[in-house]
Design a protein around this nucleic acid. Structure first.
Lengths: 111, 111
DNA sequence: TCGTTAATTAACGCTTGCGTTAAATAAAGA
DNA sequence: TCTTTATTTAACGCAAGCGTTAATTAACGA
């Protein structure tokens, strides 16, 4: 299981996906507030957060009895990087992003 | 389960991930050739391909007794789109792609 | 038509994933 | 210190995922 596979596995679950999107939109949140969002018991959410942590998708900040969670940008970036590695495969020549990347004077992966 | 969740679930499995990367690199391939790549029995690979099909990650072309598989670019694009939707969250201001996108005046082609 | 090849579906067993409630941990506050 | 609040870990049950071998389906070629 590679790092990226683990990230995909983490995001395959709808609850965890929602949590990640929520954290990106709202910023750092304590575990308790995510329980409401998920509509699940606290233990259930706690285990989802553990999966996200083990995939390095989120980080935890401890403050008193609270654990504040936030999304790690590296994880998102690694997904983006993977799609860009295969950009040549999926990007149409008239695509906006493709056009933008074509402007890149010294793009690293412009074969 | 959303479409994107299903795509992530499909890519969470190492075998399927390998198959997808192989198809992107080599282009359309018959199911049989993927059996070797995966190092699994034909039925096992067949079911992995079914998962990929149901996630709309690959398409199937029938020719005689052969089924040729290829990656659907839309699926890859939808992953890329998702990361770009959240680009503001994870992209550093000095990032190359970020810089390129910053050149974009109104989200349409600059060309 | 009969046997071979390509691929899928069926049936089975084992492991993993996910939810629940109950119990444990740990910090705060009365 | 005793109790409450925040969170995680334990224990349990059930559904889903993944692999295997055996059986099916379908197209070819002799």
């Amino acid at each position: 299981m590679t790092d990226l596979n683990r990230i995909f596995a983490a995001l395959a679950d709808e609850t965890r996906f929602k949590v990640v999107e929520h954290l990106m939109a709202q910023g750092e949140q304590p575990a308790g507030s995510l329980t409401e969002l998920a509509g699940l018991s606290a233990p259930a959410v706690s285990r989802h957060l553990k999966v996200l942590r083990e995939a390095n998708l989120v980080s935890q900040r401890v403050e008193g009895t609270h654990r504040y969670y936030s999304v790690r940008s590296e994880a998102l970036r690694s997904i983006s990087d993977w799609t860009l590695e295969h950009r040549a495969f999926w990007a149409g020549s008239l695509d906006r992003l493709d056009t933008l990347l074509a402007l890149d004077p010294d793009g690293k992966d412009t074969a």
